[in-house]
């Protein structure tokens, strides 16, 4: 039991950092919907796997990663506005998820398995999962540090960045991919309904606290981590669902940030 807990807390730290970092990027670039389409790809994949009698989370993860990888390029290829394409996929995946669940043998059992995807659980955290999450975290960190000047230019104004010869598409696609992978991995911990909160609420708090993009990224990552760890702690303490407690924690931090920003202004340096 103790090792499960330790693993869960380590996973929560990485999950929080990842969501915090990706959240700032996708909010600034209006790529929020990538989170919806990939999360529901994971759901549809899991439902399909149950119907076929395979391992749900692996198939879910594969479908989510494929979605994150091809979403941007396909939208551009067919000249469909990215948001529209992403939200259409989101609906289609949800429809398929329901269909597969309803035709799966032993409907009730599979519905329960699906609900673990929807709500998340720390009990599903294995050491392999924690290692995978930490690898993703270091990849994202290296990516952001290595390309920070370019990313900064993109976050400031993507049209100007493009006009100056930055490969805006490549950066957007890679950010979508990394966000998609982050979302689909963290589903396991927080659940499909609530993964978005870990992605967007710490970023919102960070934007309230600072006027400096570097600080915003740091705050968002730290607050994300804090929300995830605090949420798990809360859920153990009160015996409530993990995802919901993480949202409560993140929202609590958001309120404090808003109050702080109101009275003390935003940090510039």
């Amino acid at each position: 039991m103790l090792t499960i807990l330790i693993r869960a807390f380590i996973a929560a730290i990485f999950a929080g950092f990842l969501c915090g970092l990706m959240g700032v990027h996708i909010t600034r670039l209006n790529l929020n919907t990538v989170a919806f389409s990939t999360a529901h790809a994971a759901l549809a994949g899991a439902a399909l796997a149950m119907f076929l009698g395979m391992e749900p989370s692996t198939i879910g993860l594969i479908l989510a990663i494929l979605t994150a990888l091809f979403l941007g390029p396909l939208a551009d290829l067919f000249h469909i506005p990215f948001d529209l394409f992403s939200m259409s996929l989101f609906s289609i995946y949800t429809a398929f998820a329901f269909i597969f669940i309803s035709i799966s043998p032993g409907g009730v059992i599979s519905a329960q398995a699906v609900s673990s995807i929807l709500w998340g659980s720390i009990l599903t955290v294995t050491s392999g999962y924690t290692v995978f999450l930490s690898i993703l975290f270091f990849l994202v960190l290296i990516y952001i540090i290595a390309f920070f000047p370019q990313l900064k230019s993109l976050l400031f104004d993507s049209k100007l960045a493009e006009a100056e010869g930055i490969n805006v598409k490549a950066y957007k696609y890679s950010l979508m991919f990394l966000s998609g992978v982050t979302v689909s991995l963290i589903l396991k911990l927080v659940g499909g309904f609530l993964v978005f909160s870990l992605l967007f609420i710490p970023a919102a708090s960070a934007f309230l606290l600072s006027e400096n993009i570097k600080l915003i990224l740091c705050f968002s990552a730290i607050l994300g981590s804090f929300s995830a760890v605090g949420g798990i702690f809360l859920s153990l303490l009160l015996d409530l669902p993990t995802g919901a407690c993480i949202v409560l924690m993140a929202t609590f931090i958001l309120i404090i940030s808003a109050v702080y920003a109101h009275f003390f202004g935003r940090l510039r340096k």
């Binding site: 960045a161 100056e164 006027e211 993009i213």
Partner: peptide, 16 residues
């Protein structure tokens, strides 16, 4: 409220 100072904005010109 844009999270960038003038120094950052000029520096971005070098990014590409």
């Amino acid at each position: 409220g844009e999270p960038f100072i003038v120094k950052d904005v000029v520096a971005m010109g070098f990014a590409s």
